[in-house]
Design a binder for these strands. Sequence first.
DNA 1: AAATAAATATCGTGA
DNA 2: TCACGATGTTTATTT
Lengths: 264, 264
Amino acid sequence: MPRLFRTVRVRVLRDLDAEAAEDFLVAELGRRLVEVVARCRVRYEGRAESTLAEGDRVILFKPDGTLLVHSARGLKPVNWQPSGAVFHARRENGVLVVTSSRSAPKETVRMELVELHAVMSVELEDGAALALSGSEADLHAVLHARPDLVEPGFSVDGAERDTGRGPMDIVGTDERGRRVVVEVKRRAASVADVEQLRRYVERERAARAGVVRGVLLAPQVSGKARRYLDELGLECREVDWARAREAATTVRAAGQKSLAGWEA
Amino acid sequence: MPRLFRTVRVRVLRDLDAEAAEDFLVAELGRRLVEVVARCRVRYEGRAESTLAEGDRVILFKPDGTLLVHSARGLKPVNWQPSGAVFHARRENGVLVVTSSRSAPKETVRMELVELHAVMSVELEDGAALALSGSEADLHAVLHARPDLVEPGFSVDGAERDTGRGPMDIVGTDERGRRVVVEVKRRAASVADVEQLRRYVERERAARAGVVRGVLLAPQVSGKARRYLDELGLECREVDWARAREAATTVRAAGQKSLAGWEA
DNA sequence: AAATAAATATCGTGA
DNA sequence: TCACGATGTTTATTT
């Protein structure tokens, strides 16, 4: 039985030898979140292949079968495996070896833990979910509240998204009754985004008679993207989403105010 | 001065109160890799906004200014900040607050560490770089060695990529002397990939006279993508990259063998 | 610095 | 399960 320093949530392995660590990992992997700091070698085989020579890294094994191998620098783990992997710890010739395997796609990460610096496990109680705002779905809502942000006289035509012809962001009608396909981007738009719009516009033109306009709505549109839009007879409009959201909020607040007035 | 458990590489904070932790973090953040396990609240403001209610998480602060807030599940951190952020620890009304800020884009992550479970720092010695194979660049090399994998009679035209006409994956000539633009994908191809090919083919057609074919080379091509290719008069070919790499290796090995023979 | 495309992309959603 | 599109995408490369 491995000797531990314990607190309510944390178990820290006292003896950093391969045997004690093996026992600890066998007991904890897949059950609690395990952190290992170790000098290690890493090999990955699957969709691609990689090798990582000996060095110190921080390794996280989450109870859902997520693996993260982090070096001292950078956001991305140097090796990883998404949730669903199965962990296995054992000794080979006295060296502690941990593997993480998944199927679909079949992939394995093999870690040889040459020298252990720290081994611990944690019980994470967490009932909270991230509440995010400002994603593209939110911007769609903003445009429904303030269709004039596309252009004066523009109106959104119901849930056209679900008609099965193609998952267009927003379809509406302009001042002069012409159909308008709008592609919404929360970030700067590039040529690839122009092509996405082009595809939707072409499909819409094929599906129905009459003029169909295409508008790319983004905080910024690159020079090449602009030229490409020109070539294709498509348009763009730049939007400051922060300001647009405020505007939409104002509309909603004004609506509430008038409601309050009506109540009084 | 905070009291610590020390090993060669690791410093673990003994007293998990806000004051000791503040001292520890002020001393260690941005210098060594810091790990905090804590019940915390997180707020993010920048390109979007998010709030994360109280819960237990593992937080990594890397010396290069990378922040990772990991919950018990999933590969992606629930909150994060890429390298270059600046960390700041302080107490507000007795609660330990750590912020991570960057400019361009201006973004901040604010963590309120309500209850500390573990606080430690690590010195990571790591001179190794990841050696990866099987990425798209490798597949290009495979095709240069075995152009017949595109089709019999196909030959690759030098480093066309660098001639400034456009960043096409591979340009070559078919059996009948026609120009062929090849878009290489290591993964299953979708409509977006067809559009990328379409763009390159159109550019090539505009730039020179004569027929220009377009071929999408991928391990798999979705149904919609196939139909789209048909519409546009473009082609696709499915390739088993694992087998293709073997084939290319065989060619190279054969080349070495003949060289060895020539030496003898 | 700006733009373009890859990534062992991952992740959610909808059919 | 498959396919498509967003991501606070990030990262590398090239102009």
